[in-house]
Design a protein around this nucleic acid. Structure first.
Lengths: 282, 282
DNA sequence: TCAAAAGTGTTGGACCTACACCCATGT
DNA sequence: ACATGGGTGTAGGTCCAACACTTTTGA
């Protein structure tokens, strides 16, 4: 580390904010349908002007990453005080068309229904988009003491008539005992390499739901067990049996004395997160 | 994103390379003792001249993070082609005494005994240090709908007569449903914030051993099940029962026709990693 | 009355824990 | 012969999936 002049890139953060929200209710008896959504902004400036992208910003000179993410979300979306977790730093030299920019992505989770987003600084529009992920191709080639595996994933993001499609290829390679993973964007309606970031974040979230208590960050303070189950179901992408689910999460929640009323059926007890439950963090 | 002049920090990578290595054998019958170790270099230049630190380097202008880590390890330590995984990016504005430097840390894992390290560029010395972690204090304060938890961790790194001690405090805070984690160095014999990076890496590795196949990256191509068990035991920091361990990892390995000989006891079969086993990745 | 969801109980099987025991080797 | 590790079997308990069933509400 001599007193040389080293290369200095620009540094940004990008935030991938997820939520699970109620959509239309067709029947006074039925529970509202839930959708897994991500927050996108329509870019007001170059590059990628008028493209939808993850909310991001340059990191200020005296600002930590966390401060930059919080500022970004407040300035651009009017969101404050949400759960945030650093995910990954993207350092590919060619990821920004202008010049080299490295970006650290953060995942944010917000409680379903009481947040009001508002387009802010450098933002033309801001919206929640429904997320659909599909594996459209999987190939595996075995080699001597290893393998080469590719998986093509299609991401469809929808908000009313707006449909954004992206296709990403994840390559996992085992070369003399060492696993190498890299991702490639085949096609994307999103700005920059945001399709990659999104796929990474979704995989991580889905994965962590299984062995941590991260899903509670998507819930309001008090919630019914059925709503919690719906959140798990939408993230794990499979139906769960009620009795079994309740036994599984029994230690993670505490019942309150309150009930949810005015549904067309038996009122359900409201629960809270049990802060004494010892969760995994990673 | 206007055409403004944005702040540009220097960017580095730091590598935390772990291994589990055999140390002295006292008895021709007994298996060698294993030690969990990390690779450190003694800095040749300022700042922190003559301090031990994690091997790191500035990221070149046309270089990805992975390329920088590989170059760093080859230049400084003569290590090539090892398993690497990005862990975390450290962006605290004050983490480098000279000027703002952000650093992305990578964890590296190498097979126990057939690697030969060699001090290289900007390195005075290079050594494997035994790792001992101890939780020396744990406090929890409950608050309305949340808590405040601190954990003090002592890290002792040893190589012959050299003993490096560090003390780190991890704070976990639950504030209106959102978990915030931050770490603070109370005292450290290591350069920069490397004590933090090390604690983070150790926790992540220990955690991943439980639900992924990451430990196999610490093994040679062919190994005995007892040696694999020893690696698990040292990382999980608890003894395991042989019969149960073997049933647990049965699907992850394939037996070969080879045997380990010349021990003072019954020869053990050599196994390989089963590349068809579907592991978790995160 | 009844559709919808709330909430609980049961049963068989899979898996995990702890322990016991026998086998093969080099000196 | 024997210390040492290699290797396997089993009994008991826990956990989990699948299913069945009862309860409570608002219109």
């Amino acid at each position: 580390m001599k007193k040389e002049v080293f290369f200095r890139p620009s540094v940004t953060i990008d935030s991938i904010v997820f939520t699970v929200r109620d959509v239309n209710v067709d029947n006074y008896r039925k529970l509202p349908e839930k959708k897994f959504q991500v927050l996108l902004v329509k870019r007001a400036g170059e590059p990628y002007k008028d493209k939808w992208s993850l909310p991001g910003t340059f990191v200020g000179e005296k600002e930590s990453f966390e401060e930059a993410v919080n500022r970004c979300l407040e300035e651009k979306a009017n969101i404050k005080d949400i759960y945030l977790e650093q995910l990954y730093s993207w350092g590919n030299p060619l990821r920004d068309p202008r010049e080299r920019v490295i970006s650290t992505s953060y995942m944010g989770l917000v409680d379903s229904n009481n947040i009001q987003i508002k387009a802010g600084k450098n933002v033309e529009e801001i919206e929640w988009f429904n997320i659909k992920l599909k594996t459209i191709q999987e190939k595996r080639t075995d080699r001597k003491d290893g393998y080469y595996k590719t998986e093509q994933i299609e991401i469809i993001l929808e908000n009313k008539e707006i449909v954004l499609k992206s296709k990403v290829e994840v390559v996992k390679e085992l070369v003399n005992g060492n696993l190498i993973i890299y991702t490639q964007i085949l096609q994307s309606d999103l700005a920059f390499d945001h399709a990659k970031m999104l796929v990474y974040a979704i995989e991580r979230l889905k994965n962590k739901v299984e062995y941590t208590t991260i899903a509670f960050h998507l819930m309001p303070e008090k919630f019914t067990l059925t709503k919690l189950q719906q959140v798990y179901e939408i993230l794990l992408d499979k139906p769960l049996l009620k009795a079994n689910f309740r036994r599984k999460i029994a230690d993670m929640v505490i019942e309150t004395e309150e009930y949810e009323e005015n549904a067309g059926h038996r009122p359900s007890k409201l629960y809270q997160f049990n802060t004494h439950f010892q969760p995994h963090v990673f």
